[in-house]
Amino acid sequence: MRITQGTFSYLPDLSDAQITKQLQYAIDKGWAVGIEVTDDPHPRNTYWEMFGLPMFDLRDAAGILLEIHNARKTFPDHYIRVTAFDSTHQVESVVLSFIVNRPKEEPGFRLVRTEEPGRTLRYSIESYAVVARPEGARY
């Protein structure tokens, strides 16, 4: 199973050269770029751990790539994504977000169905990795 969150998950994993071009695109737009890490990639887990603060006022992607390398070294088997923030009035949100590292094995999710009266079902999504092991030892 391959988790397909993020802007470029249907493409082959991006090389550092490709990542650099996307980062430079973000920098040239004046966006701040942050690095986020998790071992709980539930589709509604919004707050991955920040690997440092978002980086403001950079001019070249090399600075961000440096931190991506640090993050990969620290969390080789976690999901790592970069997230770009646009502070323009009435945007003021994330405008680009893509995965730059993923675990070697991705066991994925189980759909849990709870039967309710009538034909109604309640649904929840459960990560096999999260259920199996505690944080930090999942992948």
Binding site: M55, D57, L66
Partner: peptide
């Protein structure tokens, strides 16, 4: 130091 280095990167 890293912050300064990152800002200077490329130049």
């Amino acid at each position: 130091t890293k912050e300064a280095l990152k800002k200077a990167m490329g130049g």
